[in-house]
Design a protein around this nucleic acid. Structure first.
Lengths: 216, 216
DNA sequence: GCGCCTTCTATTGTATACAATTGCTATGCG
DNA sequence: CGCATAGCAATTGTATACAATAGAAGGCGC
């Protein structure tokens, strides 16, 4: 979309993901327009996008609020993500080239670098991790997947618990990525898919533990 | 969405699916506004929805056109649909109730009725078929799936070749549905998932043959 | 005091006018 | 004659004013 529409999307998204928003919080188009610094028209575009990503929900009377997910929905979200990222990895494995694999290695080096410190740089970790997965999605060369998957990936609940991940968890991610790269180099799509599946399922497990502890 | 926005969506969708639109055809918001009989504002909402369903694409310069899918994309579409409908069937199998199963049976009776004539009523077939699948999706009780799947289901290319399906193909669909119902009654989610997968993959095969013949 | 109806207010939906951008065409120069 | 460029036309993007609708509050009768 266009400039105002995009900035609205980004600012509202940031407001929900990292800002002062809380699940269930009521929103109005006008308030969001203030936050984004634009008029309601581009805000409505942005809201529709965020609604598709299920970060925002509309009540039956068209009022907006910040999405609040049940445990079941989070579970389902990870399950779908695992299925689709597995599929993406399988496709990518048959469509890789040397340059892309090189980039993947580089991203993963950056990722390891980010968590090698005594206090891991979570933000850098999430950032390079996203780049890594985006690269695979790009190599999957499926417009459909590219439309569906991103909405399942970066999510508020995940973000909110990310800084509780242990160093071991983070390092395991790096190792998964290494194995993915090996599978890509071998052009073995089933291997790549299986590693990706276990990578996501482990992430879910790690998240569950962190989320459980957060409750206490 | 609201009234004008909804009618815009439906009319534009009908225009693409059943109207005079052709793949690659250039569209302007104003023309679509004329077709829908509303102003550009609700049209933009509708267009965004259709863009998400990939019925409409925007060029890099934001101009709109009717989507034109490659064979590879159609293939991928069926693959994703098979994966996700399989998952939906698996979930539904553990969440069924007698009333819903009764409705499924009724829908399938209607479907068989529609194709029992010498010249099958394709429109009625597609209609009851959609009801059947919608019911399963509803019982899967997954908001995410409900958001993702519909965009993969009713598609122009499929619609365009539907009237070439043989009576055998249509009857096989009815039998698949019968077996799905049996799996639901047994509460066997793996069974339900497997039947659904083969149901969709067969549909893809049937479509491929029909589409191939259409080219000649 | 309780419940229902009415009125008012807050919020979303739509249209329209205008701004910005993009593509196209024509014209001039080499 | 070809190409670059300037200006024009067409299209999309944004803001704002107004319409419609849903929710809240207050008043009235019972």
């Amino acid at each position: 979309m266009s400039r105002a529409s995009d900035t609205a999307y980004q600012k509202i998204r940031a407001f929900i993901l990292q800002g002062d928003a809380f699940p269930g919080m009521q929103l109005t188009e006008e308030k969001l327009a203030d936050i984004a610094g634009v008029s309601r028209t581009p805000v409505r575009d942005a809201v529709q996008r965020l609604e598709n990503e299920m970060l925002i929900v509309r009540s039956e009377s068209k009022r907006l609020s910040v999405a609040d997910w049940s445990d079941g929905e989070i579970d389902e979200m990870f399950t779908l993500r695992a299925m689709l990222e597995c599929h993406a990895a399988e496709r990518a494995a048959t469509r890789m080239d040397a340059k892309s694999i090189g980039l993947l290695s580089q991203f993963n080096d950056d990722l390891k670098e980010a968590i090698s410190q005594k206090t891991p740089d979570i933000k850098a970790f999430l950032d390079t991790n996203r780049k890594f997965h985006d690269m695979i999605l790009e190599r999957a060369q499926s417009p459909r997947l590219s439309k569906i998957l991103p909405a399942l990936i970066e999510q508020p609940v995940v973000r909110r618990t990310a800084d509780q991940y242990s160093k071991d968890d983070l390092e395991q991610s790096g190792q998964d990525h290494d194995e993915l790269i090996a599978a890509f180099e071998a052009g073995d799509s089933r291997w790549a898919g299986a590693v990706m599946t276990s990578h996501i399922r482990r992430a879910f497990h790690t998240f569950s533990v962190a989320a459980g502890e957060q409750e206490d």
